[in-house]
Design a protein around this nucleic acid. Structure first.
Lengths: 188, 188
DNA sequence: ATAATTTTGAAACGTTCATTTCAAATAAAA
DNA sequence: TTTTATTTGAAATGAACGTTTCAAAATTAT
């Protein structure tokens, strides 16, 4: 009986991600979202609830997208250190705008407990990933055993946040790569 | 002849810094600033120009405050590595809110060219400081020579950004310290 | 005291904000 | 084709935004 949703939910979220990634939560207006998605204002509220709910769904979409990239790297690489290096590589959007989740941390984590919990869960899952990679590298001898896999994982996550912030200010790709080199040299 | 400014400019800026540090630029309203500073709306505009100008002056005040702390550490410490460790230590405000300049980077650098330039200058001056400290540590043998002082300086600045972001999410001081330990272990 | 000059307070400016409303258009099910 | 449920478009909501205005209060120099 009902008329059905005409737009593709994933496409809309992708456009919302782009917008929030570029401007952040507070500087993005509902009008911006209407313009960028091509959806009607009412349709956005019908389908996504509110600006805040759309933002949170955008965070999830961004995370899912990042996970997909990581999975792709995991399949094609056997060397853990090289896998970590690929994770540190920056997408064009991240180069200009930083990491959406890192930006969200600085903008929202101290204001919104739900978002802080989401970000903490992301921190945990990323660290779990790094623990596995580091442990595997330590087992095969390509990563040293000076620190525990857990210590290195916590370090890697934090270093990753750093390069996503500083990267916004860096114009030269070689500066970026040199910093990542030094970051990963701890593991060698 | 004229009536003179009754408020202390530094005190007002300190309060503005606290506010921008806690909420960021876009989420801070002029009403918030009026409430927090106790100044009249007109007085703020008379004395600071606009919200954006007040923000930029707050960034400068924050940087000056940080420089003052660094100078104090430099006077009381002779060991470069220990000095760097003290710079990595976090003030209570930074613990909850991150680094104001880092937050500014993620919120504004890709939107406002003047602010980006200011942040780039800060990056350069911080790296210069780290270059001196690392070079001095390398000269005295407490820091290794695996990489150049410049490479280590760029790394340290970026690592610092990272711990200021992740620190927002960390509840345990020991997690924080462990990450800094790993970060600085590259130099040893 | 008076004059000169600035700060102050309060109100108002026009704009934009997120969100709601609701009739008209639409499309699948009956 | 009619019914039914949903989306759509456009307008309206009231609140908040940054900024300006301006007369009144305040303060220093004359």
């Amino acid at each position: 009986m009902p008329r059905v949703e005409i737009f593709n939910r994933e496409d809309v979220l992708e456009k919302a991600v782009k917008l929030f990634h570029n401007k952040g939560y507070n500087a993005t207006s509902m009008q911006d979202l209407v313009d960028a998605t091509g959806l009607n204002r009412s349709s956005i509220y019908n389908s996504f609830g509110s600006k805040m709910e759309l933002y949170q769904q955008s965070l999830r979409a961004y995370k899912a997208q990042a996970n997909k990239y990581v999975q792709k790297v995991l399949v094609h690489n056997s060397d853990p250190l090289e896998t970590i290096r690929k994770i540190f590589a920056t997408s064009p959007d991240d180069k200009v705008n930083g990491c959406l989740l890192g930006n969200c941390t600085t903008e929202m984590a101290n204001q919104d407990i739900d978002i802080k919990n989401f970000l903490t869960n992301n921190l945990i899952s990323m660290q779990d990933l790094f623990v596995e990679l580091v442990a595997s590298g330590q087992a095969s001898g390509s990563i040293n055993g000076n620190k525990s896999a857990k210590d290195y994982a916590a370090y890697l996550f934090t270093a990753l946040q750093g390069i996503r912030v500083t990267g916004i200010l860096l114009d030269e790709q070689k500066d970026f790569e040199s910093i990542v080199d030094t970051m990963l040299s701890v593991l060698e």
